[in-house]
C-alpha cells in the first residue's frame, strides 16, 4: 500500500480516536487511560465479523456493518467498564481505566480463535481513504452536535464543577457514562477502520502506550476542543514518520521527543494549541452560526 495513502488513513483513524477521547477527557473531565482497549475491541470484533461470519455482500457494506459492530461492542464495553469506574475520581479513575484497557488486551492475547499473541491475519482490505474520512466527518458532526446541545452542556458542566452540576439538577453519573460510551464507541469504529486498513492486527497494536499517545494528542491540541483534537491527532501521527528521516536513533527516542515537546508546550501554552476554542468554518466565512 502506498505509504502516503496509508499515513493519511492513519491520520483519519487517530482523529476519530482523539475526538472520541476528547469527549471523555476534555469535555466531561473524566481522566480515562483505557482508550486503546476500546480501539482493540472494535478492531477485533469487526475483523472477526468480516473473516468468520460476513455474508457475501459488497465490501463497503461489510465494512460499514463492521464499523457499527465496532461502535456497539466498544460502546457496551465502555458501559461495563464505566459503570464501576466512573464513581471514582481523578487519578483513581485513570488507574482503573488503564487496568481495564490492559485486561482487554490480555483477554485478546488469550483468544486463539482471533490469533492470540500471534495476531489476527487475513483481514480483507475493505477500508480506503473515502470510508475513513466519511467516518471522520460522522464522528466530528455527531460529537459536535452532542456538545452543542443540552446533553453536551450537561457533560461539560461536570468538567467545570461536578458538585455545582448536581445542584443544577444534572444526573452527573448518567452523563459521565454517556460521554464514556460514546467516546468508546467511536474508538470501536476507529478499530474497525484500522483492522480493515492494515489487514493484520495483534495485541501489541493496542498497548497502554497508545492510550497515552491518544491522550497526548488531545493535550497537545487543547483539552475540550474538537479542533484541537483533530490537529493534535494529525501532528502526532505525522511527527514520528518525520522523525524517521533522521534515522533509527532519533526514531527510537520518539517518546523522549514527545515528552520534551509536551514540557515545552506546557511552559509556553499550558492550555494546548487551541485551549477550549473551536475553529468554526461558518463563523470564519462570516456565514453566521450562533452560540
Amino acid at each position: 500500500m502506498d505509504y502516503f495513502l496509508y499515513l493519511t488513513q492513519m491520520c483519519g483513524i487517530f482523529i476519530i480516536l482523539a475526538v472520541g477521547l476528547n469527549l471523555i477527557n476534555g469535555m466531561c473531565g473524566q481522566f480515562s487511560l483505557g482508550h486503546a482497549g476500546f480501539w482493540a475491541i472494535g478492531a477485533y470484533t469487526s475483523a472477526a465479523f468480516t473473516v468468520f461470519v460476513a455474508p457475501p455482500l459488497p465490501g463497503f457494506i461489510v465494512l460499514f456493518i463492521g464499523c457499527i459492530i465496532g461502535f456497539i461492542t466498544a460502546g457496551i464495553a465502555g458501559l461495563i467498564i464505566g459503570v464501576p469506574c466512573l464513581r471514582l475520581k481523578g487519578d483513581y479513575l485513570a488507574i482503573a481505566t488503564l487496568g481495564f484497557g490492559e485486561i482487554i488486551r490480555i483477554v485478546i492475547m488469550n483468544m486463539n480463535s482471533v490469533g492470540g499473541p500471534r495476531g489476527f491475519t487475513g483481514i480483507p482490505q475493505l477500508s480506503n481513504l473515502f470510508w475513513v474520512y466519511l467516518w471522520v466527518v460522522i464522528t466530528i458532526v455527531v460529537i459536535a452536535n452532542i456538545v452543542r446541545g443540552t446533553h453536551g452542556r450537561a457533560i461539560i458542566s461536570i468538567r467545570e464543577d461536578e458538585i455545582a452540576a448536581e445542584s443544577m439538577g444534572i444526573n452527573t453519573f448518567r452523563y459521565k457514562t454517556l460521554a464514556f460510551c460514546v467516546g468508546a464507541g467511536f474508538a470501536g469504529v476507529a478499530g474497525a477502520l484500522f483492522s480493515h486498513t492494515t489487514q493484520f492486527i495483534s495485541p501489541t497494536n493496542f498497548t497502554f502506550m497508545w492510550s497515552v499517545i491518544i491522550l497526548l494528542m488531545i493535550i497537545l491540541g487543547g483539552m475540550g476542543s474538537i479542533t484541537g483534537a483533530v490537529v493534535g491527532a494529525i501532528i502526532l501521527t505525522i511527527l514520528p514518520e518525520l522523525l524517521r528521516f533522521f534515522g533509527d536513533t532519533v526514531s527510537q527516542w520518539r517518546m523522549v521527543i514527545y515528552s520534551v515537546i509536551l514540557i515545552l508546550l506546557m511552559m509556553i501554552r499550558p492550555t494546548g494549541l487551541f485551549g477550549k476554542h473551536e475553529f468554526n468554518p461558518l463563523k470564519f466565512l462570516k456565514l453566521g452560526g450562533k452560540s
Binding site: I156, S157, E160, M168, G169
Partner: peptide
C-alpha cells in the same frame, strides 16, 4: 461561589434548565 467558570453566562443559565 461555584459557577461554571470557563463557560459563558448564558451557558451557566442554560445548564440549570437542562432537566
Amino acid at each position: 461561589i461555584r459557577l461554571f467558570k470557563d463557560l459563558s453566562v448564558l451557558d451557566n443559565i442554560r445548564i440549570a434548565g437542562h432537566s
